[in-house]
């Protein structure tokens, strides 16, 4: 098999692009120097750790109803962030809710990413009819304002967290497919792909060894830019009642619960809202930082 299509050749290409630059210009160094991105990363790590450790943390039972302690304000001795309309501990519900919100967002991103990358790679690599058909299908998906498509899908599948996740995943296939396709096209124009083809490497081999390794950087940027949006969107669907159904609850459904009591207990919507903003802000700053460090060509407007 030709030497040119070996996996290291792609790595060399990337390394080659940075050869002669100083270490300070390398993507990782640029990312680390970006204070906002690092702050975002820290928030994400902390929230993820809290979510993972929820079962072993000394938290009140998130579902323990205590009608004598309803809507207690933050700072109460036994409920740091207060309680909700059923007397449940908000801090505990936030942390348990983070598990749901994060899991749904990560799974939805995973699904959208896998299918979108598959479509993007096939369309970009083979071009021609395959490209045309896929891109027309993507055009149809894009003909819907994105939440609307999610709503249409939830209406078909029925309200519920899993269905909301599936809907959000499907909506975002087009985002990944289009961006991956254009990344593939730019890789395809490099000489070593032609060389690999001329050397008789199979399509599968070229895709696996030359194309996909070059997709890692753009995909990392896409995911980090996209996942914050998925957190908001899951919360949104839960908020209007199309996502998490009781007894499951995420940050969106906590907001929906608190909404009925905003007159008497605004903290019930403050806490989950701040949690969402914090996490989404963290993902967005990390995504921006990654984009600037890895792939400055991915610019605004990519949704």
């Amino acid at each position: 098999m030709s030497e040119i299509s070996s996996p290291t050749s792609a790595a060399n290409q990337v390394a080659g692009a940075y050869a002669g630059r100083r270490a300070a210009d390398m993507p990782l160094a640029r990312l680390v120097r970006n204070r906002m991105a690092m702050l975002g990363l820290a928030v994400i790590v902390v929230v993820t750790m809290l979510a993972l450790l929820a079962p072993v943390l000394p938290l009140a039972d998130p579902n323990a109803i205590n009608t004598s302690a309803r809507l207690k304000p933050p700072g109460s001795p036994d409920a740091v962030l207060g309680t909700d309309q059923l007397g449940r501990d908000i801090l505990s519900r936030l942390i348990w809710g983070a598990r749901v919100s994060l899991l749904v967002a990560v799974l939805a991103a995973g699904i959208a990413l896998s299918i979108g990358t598959l479509i993007g790679v096939l369309a970009g690599y083979f071009g021609g009819l395959i490209d045309n058909v896929f891109m027309r299908l993507i055009d149809v998906l894009l003909a819907f304002p994105y939440v609307l498509l999610a709503i249409a899908l939830v209406s078909a599948l029925g309200p519920g967290l899993i269905n909301a996740m599936i809907a959000i995943a499907i909506v975002n296939i087009s985002f990944y497919a289009r961006n991956v396709r254009s990344a593939v096209l730019s890789v395809m124009s490099m000489e070593y792909i032609d060389a690999a083809r001329a050397a008789g490497a199979s399509h599968l081999r070229i895709i696996a060894l030359d194309i996909l390794p070059n997709m890692i950087a753009p995909i990392m940027v896409l995911v980090s830019l996209n996942i914050g949006w998925m957190v908001t969107e899951t919360a949104g669907l839960s908020f209007v009642g199309l996502g998490a159904q009781p007894p499951t609850s995420d940050w969106g459904s906590m907001l929906a619960d608190g909404r009925r009591f905003i007159l008497v207990a605004p903290h019930a919507i403050m806490m989950p809202g701040i949690a969402i903003v914090l996490l989404v802000f963290a993902f967005n700053s990390l995504g921006d930082g990654l984009r600037d460090a890895l792939d400055p060509r991915l610019r605004e407007g990519g949704r």
Binding site: M36, F239, I269, G273, I276, V280, N284
Partner: peptide, 13 residues
């Protein structure tokens, strides 16, 4: 950055 990170339904409330 803050504006795009804030869900409209929360800001509204």
């Amino acid at each position: 950055m803050l504006a795009v990170s804030m869900p409209a339904f929360w800001v509204g409330m």
